[in-house]
Simulated scan of single mutants.
Amino acid sequence: MDKLLVVPINKDVAAGAIFVAFALGFGLISTNYPMGRLAQMGPGYYPALLSAILAVFGIAIGITGFRKGAEKVVVVRPLALIAVLGSPILFAATVRPLGFVPAVILTSLVATIAAPRMTLIQRLGAALVLTLGCTVIFILALGIPLPLLGNWLTF
């Protein structure tokens, strides 16, 4: 079994930092718009106000997090995370030019990168079963009008 990386992380401090980061980002973006004043608000006033409120919440959550102890959290392997989250994007980018069947095969093979203990035969088998199932369900049963082979693969 793979050794999992377990690190102590204070979730409240991390969440507070994320809130503050988003608040700063949206607050900076809102400065590109005229602020106006309270009696006649400009398009940048309300986003700036919401950013300030979000920052206050983030700081409050972070401060309460410092009072608690850190929890042990399992860190996900970055390659596995990228493979799983990138697979739907890869499918969307390849379904028109390659076609439905090659896009499902490619997507499922990329997604299996997240399972390092799978052999090549298991990966190919999973891709084949997934492709057959998706073709039957989406193309034949539901009638979604996607070409089985795309422009890049037809002659």
Score class of each variant (00 low, 15 high):
G62E: 03
L54F: 12
R67D: 03
T94G: 04
P78K: 13
P43N: 09
R37M: 14
V74W: 01
I89D: 00
I18V: 15
T64K: 11
I63E: 06
P88Q: 09
M41L: 12
V95H: 02
Y45M: 09
R77L: 12
R67P: 09
A80L: 10
F19N: 08
A70V: 04
L79N: 11
G44C: 11
F66C: 14
R67E: 08
Y46S: 06
A52S: 13
L38N: 07
G25I: 08
L98Y: 00
V76N: 11
V84K: 02
P47Q: 05
I63K: 02
R37S: 15
V56M: 13
V76D: 12
L85N: 07
A83K: 02
L98K: 01
S87M: 14
F66L: 15
F91C: 06
A48F: 06
P47H: 07
I89H: 08
G69H: 07
A39P: 01
L28G: 14
G62P: 08
L54P: 02
V76S: 14
S51A: 15
F57V: 12
A21W: 05
Y33D: 05
S30V: 10
L85D: 11
L54N: 02
P43W: 05
P88Y: 09
R77F: 11
L49H: 03
A92Q: 03
A55K: 08
F19W: 11
G25Q: 04
K72I: 04
I89S: 10
G25R: 03
E71A: 15
F91N: 04
V95Q: 01
T64W: 05
G99V: 00
A55Y: 05
G62R: 05
A55Q: 10
R37K: 15
I82Y: 11
Q40Y: 03
T31H: 07
F91I: 01
V20E: 02
Q40G: 04
V20P: 02
V75W: 07
Q40D: 15
L85M: 14
I89W: 12
P43Q: 06
V76W: 04
V95S: 00
L49K: 07
I89F: 15
G62N: 05
F22W: 12
R96A: 14
L28W: 13
A83Q: 06
G99Q: 01
G58I: 08
G86S: 12
T64M: 11
I18G: 08
G99S: 06
G86V: 09
G86D: 07
I53F: 12
S30H: 10
I89A: 15
Y33M: 10
V75L: 13
R77H: 15
A39Q: 06
A48G: 15
T31D: 07
G42V: 08
F22K: 02
S51F: 05
E71D: 13
Y46P: 00
P43R: 03
V73L: 04
F19E: 06
Q40S: 13
R77Y: 12
F91M: 06
G69C: 06
L79V: 14
A60K: 02
I63A: 13
P43M: 10
A23H: 04
P47W: 08
I29W: 11
T94L: 15
T94M: 13
S51T: 07
A52P: 00
A92G: 14
Y33I: 00
M41I: 09
G69P: 01
G25C: 10
P78S: 14
A55R: 03
K68R: 15
G86W: 05
L49G: 02
L28Y: 11
P43E: 11
F26C: 04
L49R: 09
I82Q: 03
